Amino acid sequence: MKFLFQLLSGWPLPLLHALGSAVGWLAFLLSPTYRRRFLANAAQAGYGFAQVRSAVAQAGKLVTETPRLWFGAPPRVSWDGVEAIEALRAQGRGIVFLTPHLGCFEVTAQAYAQRFGAITVLYRPPRKAWLRELVDTARNRANLHAAPTTLSGVRQMLRALKAGDAVGLLPDQVPPQGLGVWAPFFGREAYTMTLPARLVQQTGAAVLLAWGERLPGARGYCVHVRPWEGALAADASQSAAQVNARMEELVRAGPTQYLWGYARYKKPRSEALA
């Protein structure tokens, strides 16, 4: 599998995205479960299929662009709102980036690492050993560090923030049992991580919202950055609701690039934490 990823990493982005469009539609047409979840999640947010139809192809592009992002040359990236990052770095503050399953979330952390320096991203280690090894070797690039969804991973993120570095989270990812609370997301209760508020409370870090938009014609990406307005509540349920509300705002800014097929409303699973 690593050989295949390395082979695909040399393909030009337009070709990878063309392949991804086909992969996305095949998955949508051949998997009734995926299709039902895609349509149900979009409807929950108030979107008809015609409004988010292109998100089918975008989901496939997410898959086929990954080899390029993990093993290939860095793609072209532009920035929108980079001043918010520069202001916080000038203050020496740690930054917590919150990014939903929107657009190319891999490129947001990579672009930050290339331009600004160290960033630690939270990820869930794959269950299969061969895939775990692939992910571990691919994601740990210069200035880009991966922290697993364990207590040791949380401690790694705390150390980074206290050193004035950045961390990145996908707060619309369902956390393991015991690491979240139920909070509304597009009007339906979803199990939501409480980690963002805890990181801020324990380190005094600032929060920024970010997502990586795929530009038309495979011309690269644009990383959009927005400041967090107000303060995160100390109460876990209130802060989770705040985070979900902000994620909703980002999704509505680019609904055709949201991963509507993600099982956002599933029940959390029990995992051993270490």
Rank of each mutant, 00 (worst) to 15 (best):
I85V: 15
L179H: 13
Q173W: 09
D172Y: 13
V23G: 01
L29G: 03
W260R: 06
L208T: 01
L259R: 09
Y112M: 02
R252V: 03
L131P: 01
R214T: 06
A129C: 00
L4E: 01
E229W: 02
A253P: 05
R141I: 08
H145L: 13
A142P: 09
K2N: 06
L199R: 09
G164V: 13
Q242F: 10
R198L: 14
L88I: 11
F105R: 04
T108P: 00
K128R: 15
E83W: 12
T203E: 08
P126A: 00
A18K: 12
L208S: 06
Y112W: 08
H101Q: 09
V82E: 11
A272M: 03
W260G: 02
R127K: 14
P255G: 03
R76N: 11
E106F: 04
P184F: 12
T108R: 01
R68C: 08
R269N: 11
L26N: 01
F185L: 13
G168E: 03
S270Y: 12
L131N: 01
T149V: 14
T194A: 07
G180W: 13
A109D: 00
R264Y: 13
N143A: 06
P175Q: 05
A42I: 06
W130F: 10
S78P: 04
P176Y: 11
L169R: 11
F185W: 11
A263V: 05
V56K: 02
P184A: 06
A42W: 02
R37F: 01
T192Q: 10
S270H: 13
S9E: 04
P32C: 03
V82N: 00
A234Q: 12
E83V: 07
R35L: 06
A109T: 07
P148R: 12
R89L: 15
D165Y: 12
F38T: 02
Q114I: 00
R246F: 12
R155Q: 15
A160G: 09
L158I: 14
A45E: 05
T149Y: 09
L232A: 02
S78A: 08
Q44Y: 07
W182P: 09
F116Q: 02
R124V: 07
T137K: 14
A218Y: 10
K128Y: 00
Q58L: 07
R155A: 15
N143W: 06
L134E: 01
L7C: 09
G164Y: 13
D80C: 11
A241K: 14
L144W: 12
G168P: 12
V135K: 03
P12M: 08
R159I: 14
K61L: 11
G254Q: 14
L158M: 15
Q156F: 07
L4K: 03
P255N: 03
A84H: 15
V174N: 11
G180N: 13
T137H: 08
C222P: 02
A18W: 12
I95G: 01
A241T: 15
D165R: 15
Q257C: 08
T192L: 12
V174Y: 11
I85F: 07
G164R: 10
W25G: 02
V23Q: 03
W79P: 00
P12T: 08
G117R: 04
R115M: 00
L16W: 10
L144M: 14
